[in-house]
Structure formats: structure tokens, C-alpha cells
Amino acid sequence: MRFDSLLDSLGHTPLVGLPRLSPSPDVRLWAKLEDRNPTGSVKDRPALWMIAQAEKDGLLAPGCTILEPTSGNTGISLAMAARLRGYRMVCVMPENTSEERRQILRMWGAEIIASPAAGGSNEAVRVAKGLAAEHPDWVMLYQYGNEANARAHYETTGPELLADLPSVTHFVAGLGTTGTLMGVGRYLRERVPDVKIVAAEPRYGELVYGLRNIDEGFVPELYDESVLTTRFSVGSADALRRTRELLDQEGIFAGLSTGGALHAALGMARKAVKAGERADIAFIVADGGWKYLSTGAYEGTLEEAESRLEGQLWA
């Protein structure tokens, strides 16, 4: 495959079967390898679409500053594109994120403003909104509420998936901004009767939920509950265990949020087997494991790895 530039090579990722983890020939699991994107994560899709839309709307011109609250991957995608397009990139990132993410962001020239660990991404959003108010000339693309985020998946991820797997019965992905699930979910619902759209939401250690009061909670503006069939909370122990199973049994080296999605996918597979129904369950491999090596997730016992992840934003 030949492309005019790296940005043009976005998407068209492989969908691979999981012959060992699938419970039977009638109930099959399929992994969409989104780590095969320009900067190595699914976030390249929304990031590049949000930039393209902002350029089209006349909000961005060379020399502009982009501001974004991000726990890592969206910032990395935006930083790469900003470098190529001549923008300055400022990321607000919780301090309890892996060192690799910081190094990669700096490598592409992004400036990082740390937000407090307690409160996780909620705090990053709050700090970024404050900065946006102080700097009205900065452009906050705001992945949580930018419709180009979900549209990127409606226009690209969804069609790719359905073309490769017309018999799809379930779609499973991690829930963060909700963009992947909203975009792919809507696309599939319009075309596949009774398709099940399943969210796997990471459940972190307590520190991340350390809000001052319950009204400080956050629900992304993009989120529309009616698109989902159901939503599971996946703790770090289950996410870790599944990440390692994917590595050991299928050879796929994925990040920890993928383990969360696989856990929910296997839960749906078990239900289908029990009900005697056929199923083709596709889930998203959001990124590779490279950025999480320093967390120790891939070494030692699961218990050791889990304790090392305590308090970390691992997805």
C-alpha cells in the first residue's frame, strides 16, 4: 500500500481472528488492530479528523496553539499532526500517567502541563477549561464533546469493520471519550439488525475517583446511552489478566485498555455459547503495549503487576 504521506495512511487496520481465545467455531472473537495507525493508537482517527474539521472551519492556521486535556494517546496523535502542520501543541495530562507517554509527547514537541493525580482525567479537563478561558486565542479541540471524534469512527472504523466482517453480531470497545463506541455503534446499528454495542469502562484505583464531591463527576458530551446495549466496569486485575492472555495465546502485544475490552468480549462470548447462538464479536485493540512497559504490567505475577498499577491511569 502506498500513501502520499504518513497522515494519509490513517486507518485501514487489519481485523484478525483469535482462534485460541474464541470458544467455538460458531462463537468467534476478532481483534481490530488500531495500533497499526500513524502514531500507534486508535486516537489517530479522531485527532486527525478534529484537526481537519477545525482547519475547514477556519479555526486553525499555521502558528496557532492547540490545547487538549488528554491521558496520552489523543495528545500524542495531535502532537504529531501539529508538528507536521505547524501548530504549537499544549497537553494537559494527569501526573499519574506512564513516563513513556510524556517522552513521546515531548519528542513531537508538545508542551505538557501536569494536572493533579487525584481526580484523574476530570482534573485534566478542569485545568484545560481554565487555560482555555485564560487564552482565548488557543484552540481546544476538546475530544469529549467534538462531534468530529465520533464522526471519524462513523466514517472510517465502522465501514472498515463491516466490510471485513459482514456477519458481525457484537462490537466491544473501551469507554473513554465514548467517541469510538458512539461512531461505530451508530454506523452498525443503522445496518446490522440486533447488533450489540458493548462498552468496557476501565475501573481504576481509588485515587482516580478522589473527587471533592459527587457533582464534580463527568459525563462526556458525546455520550448517548441509547447507542449502547450494555456497559461493563473492568478492574485492573481483569484487564491485566486478559492483556497477558492475548499475548500468551494469540501473540498480540496490546496495551491494558485492550485487556479490558477483551474481558467484556469474552463475557459476551460466554453468554452466546450458553444461549446456543452464533456470534462474531469484534473488539478494538486501542494501542500496543510499548507505552506501558515501565508500569511493569508484563512482568512478574499478576498480583505484583496489579499492585504496581494502583493509582495509575492505565487506559
Binding site: 469507554l175 471519550t177 475501573r203 463527576g217
Partner: peptide, 25 residues
């Protein structure tokens, strides 16, 4: 919310977790 909300039926040994809604991404 995807079961029966507050009307969701419970059984002995069930496990209920309450969490504030937080951002991901």
C-alpha cells in the same frame, strides 16, 4: 442503567459497586 435501573433485581451474593462518573481518554 442497562439492566432495570433502580428496579434491577438482586440475588444473594451479588456484588454492587458505586462509583462517581469520571472522564477517560
Amino acid at each position: 442503567r442497562f439492566l432495570d435501573g433502580l428496579g434491577t433485581e438482586l440475588a444473594d451474593g451479588d456484588d454492587v459497586t458505586i462509583l462517581p462518573a469520571v472522564a477517560g481518554g
